[in-house]
Amino acid sequence: MITYLEAIREAQAKALADDPRVYIYGQDVGSFGGAFKATKNLAKEFPGRVLDAPISEDAMVGSAIGAAIEGMRPIIEIQYADFSTPGFNQIVNHAATLFWRTEVSCPITIRLPSGGTAGSGPFHSQSMEGLYAHYPGLVVMTPATVEDAYSMLLEAVAIDDPVIFCEHKYLYYHLKAEGLPTEALPVGKARIARQGRDITVVTYSAMVHECLAAAEDLVAEGYEVEVVDLRSIKPLDTDTVLASVARTGRLLAVGEAWPWGGVTAEILARVASEGFGLLDVPPRRLNAKNTPVPYHPNLWGTHRPTAQTVARALRELLRL
């Protein structure tokens, strides 16, 4: 069995082994192996290519841009997605604009350990994907499975553009698979995680598992829920979403990020403008509450969508 976190570590080991242009730069990633051990033993296996960085997210990302200009393919580990804000300027104004301005591509991968876990509080829990997806020039991946964590990270390193790789911390240890995949869907293609004919749930990352659990709960009530795992939110596979809504006539979009704007709003906007006639009832979305992410598990468990709140929203939509 291999965990989601081990898959990320294995993907980095393979990227380092396969391509001498790849190196890893981030806080504590060297001999310590990273705050979550996503780079465990890599510094030893690949001497000089897994480097500890000072606590300087702006300079870490800036340096990756310079190295990419010179032909390297850096992987930057930001310790928590929340700490990408000090590096935000280099990501959105520099990495994301480089190719468009200069015709020189910027193949950097920025790993963001994302999303909430119990007890993590306001500054170690954030889901930043919608923020980065807003900017042109970035690819934003949000893997929900062990297999995708592995294959999409390898693709992220291979892609000639900056990739924001949102790996979910809640899945790091919880999620296990039999082994590493040998093939994968192309990036930009969503996956039907569960087939159903009554309603479509579009989601991504850790919320895929809450939605699958909710779908399972509704079986006893006679409902068949289709769950679409977006895999990458930019590009967003609008075709797969529309095709699913065409089959079910109902749409719920679920995301762990805050409700204003963002991925779930984008899904509803796309379906409303391109697939209005496919909808039998008004579409709906479910997000975290509009406050910072709370610390105590009681509060945190209510702040974010869960299988229970997803199931409730599904029932309400199905009864319309």
Binding site: G62, G66, A67
Partner: peptide, 11 residues
């Protein structure tokens, strides 16, 4: 912003 980018080029 350019200072760290030059650093990365040198790395």
């Amino acid at each position: 912003a350019m200072i760290s980018v030059v650093c990365g080029g040198l790395m």
